[in-house]
C-alpha cells in the first residue's frame, strides 16, 4: 500500500498509544483498586460500601463500559483525522 508520509505508521502508533492508556486504566480499576490495593482502599467509603469492595463488585464494571465508549469516540476521530474512515 502506498504510504508516502508514513501516515499509516503514525496512525497505528497513535492507536497503540490510546490502547496503552485505556488498558492502563482498565488494569488500574480492576486489578489495582479491586484486588491488590483493595484492603488499603477499604478504609475509604462510598455510601455504605468499602471502596475496594465496591470497585471489585460495581465500580470497575461502570468504568469498563465508559472505557469502550471513550475508545469508540477517540478512534472515530482518529480515523477521520488520518482519512482512513469508512464511507
Amino acid at each position: 500500500m502506498a504510504d508516502p508520509d508514513n501516515k499509516l505508521v503514525k496512525y497505528w502508533k497513535r492507536n497503540l498509544l490510546y490502547l496503552v492508556v485505556l488498558l492502563g486504566i482498565w488494569f488500574l480499576v480492576s486489578y489495582v483498586f479491586g484486588i491488590f490495593a483493595a484492603d488499603a482502599l477499604n478504609s475509604v467509603r462510598i455510601g455504605g460500601a468499602k471502596l475496594g469492595f465496591w470497585f471489585a463488585q460495581q465500580g470497575s464494571i461502570y468504568i469498563f463500559v465508559i472505557l469502550i465508549f471513550v475508545y469508540v469516540w477517540l478512534m472515530n476521530r482518529l480515523d477521520k483525522e488520518y482519512d482512513v474512515h469508512e464511507d
Binding site: L19, L22, L23, W26, S30, F64, L67, I68, Y71, V72
Partner: peptide, 8 residues
C-alpha cells in the same frame, strides 16, 4: 472486563 479487550 473481557469486553474491553474485545473492543480494543
Amino acid at each position: 472486563g473481557g469486553y474491553v479487550l474485545l473492543a480494543l
